[in-house]
Simulated assay, not measured.
Amino acid sequence: MGGRTSEVACPRPPSLATGPVYLDHNATTPVDPRVTEAALPYWTGFFGNPSSEHAYGGEPRRALAAARAQVAGLIGARPAEIVFTGSGSEANLLALRGAVLAAGARDAHLVVQATEHPAVLETARALGRLHGTRVTVLPVDHHGLVSHDALAAALRTGSDRTVVSIMAANNETGAIQPVADLAALAHSRGALVHCDAAQACGKIPVDVGELDVDLLTVVGHKMYAPRGAAALFVREGVALEPVVYGGGQERGLRAGTENVALAVALGTAARLAADDLDAGRIAALRDDLHRRLAEALPGRVRLNGPEAAGQRLPNTLNVGIDGTRGHEVLARAPEIAASTGSACHSGVHEPSPVLTAMGFDAGRALAAIRLSLGRWSTQADVDTAVRALAAAVVDR
């Protein structure tokens, strides 16, 4: 799994046939044509409610069960532990709000880390504001990693009313957190552990048993399924307050008739990822891109995130180029589609909160460019990116 070195053989989406080289896979991925093909019958033909007992409900019900098993297979879970949701943000909300309210919000302690996705950080803030939950935000080091000691300090008063949320991999830098080590510590203090694995699933192996987490978020549009398809792993025996009340769908945690087509899409994407993560080929392209950028712009390219290969997603390269601003460089390089970590408000760019939390000053943070490769990235794409970025920076 993940050992290929040749160009990818699966069909290329028509959406990539024209336009700039796409290097923004951490934002969203093109839908794999095989995913579209699998899901299409559940939009066009098998329209029945999977809860219906008559003939029209049979095939949707079977497909929903198969998709649940496929998602479970990707992360080493049991099918009954998979709850389908409408987005990763909703899955994170169900995990954190659900666990905190089930534990008694005013007595609960929620521990998150500073570079989490806003879906986690804003949920934590809302729980503190609306329910009086005590919230601790852990610092990260200059690589973006949480330390064992920082979590230990936060858990000195740990109990079964404590919920810890640690993302598997960061969306901007690709930094891979030591989740298993942190989860072991949290469990030793009686805490429940959630992991937002939106960026990790489909890129690196993810196994809920090895990570020893109680809750884990999976997101479809980060691994070649459509937007609107996601899931939450809920370990058997974990109590959560529902995110949507009503019928008994999704173990009673997320009421509403299931979107079978999107579940099938997510399941198919999970199966394809489990069959071949393609990490080796993509990492080789990423490292070649990094090396050649550094050669084209000697002494000016700074890596943002861990240098060790095993501590960063194989597809992710976040770099700053001295003396530049990332959004200006990308504006002068229309041949590629990539992103920065900065936020733009009324034309004013602000430093990435992730890079700021890592201790970078505003100049270093505003220079950042995130280049994230994917399933159909090629050597020709790397060639184009190096040329475009070097040309956009030269003499600036």
Rank of each mutant, 00 (worst) to 15 (best):
A230L: 12
P351W: 12
G299K: 13
E116V: 08
A230Y: 13
A309G: 11
A103V: 05
A65K: 03
A55T: 13
L253W: 07
T29R: 11
V354S: 10
T268D: 07
W376F: 06
L373C: 05
A63M: 04
R4K: 07
H194A: 15
D383W: 09
R129C: 03
D275I: 00
T217Q: 06
E37Q: 12
A55Y: 09
G202R: 00
L138N: 05
S87G: 04
A198P: 10
V301T: 00
A184D: 14
G58A: 12
Y42F: 15
R254Y: 15
V386H: 11
A392L: 13
A392H: 07
G144S: 01
S159V: 04
V21E: 00
A261M: 05
S339K: 01
A124S: 07
A55W: 14
P41W: 04
P205N: 10
E241V: 11
L74G: 00
G57P: 07
H54G: 07
C10K: 03
P41T: 10
L215T: 04
R68Y: 01
G73T: 01
E328I: 08
A65Y: 05
L277P: 04
D149F: 07
V71L: 02
A308K: 05
N92L: 08
M1T: 12
N171E: 15
T133R: 01
L317G: 05
G158L: 09
N318D: 14
A380V: 01
H221W: 12
P298M: 10
V163C: 11
L16P: 10
P306F: 06
P351K: 11
R286A: 01
E90Y: 03
F360P: 02
A239T: 15
R332F: 12
Y224F: 14
G247V: 09
T136V: 09
H345E: 01
A66L: 02
A270L: 10
A333S: 09
V120P: 01
V21T: 13
S342G: 04
C10I: 12
G3I: 15
A55L: 14
A9G: 03
V163I: 15
A153H: 13
V140N: 00
A91M: 07
G252A: 08
H143N: 03
P139F: 13
A273P: 07
V238K: 05
D24V: 10
D32S: 11
D395Q: 13
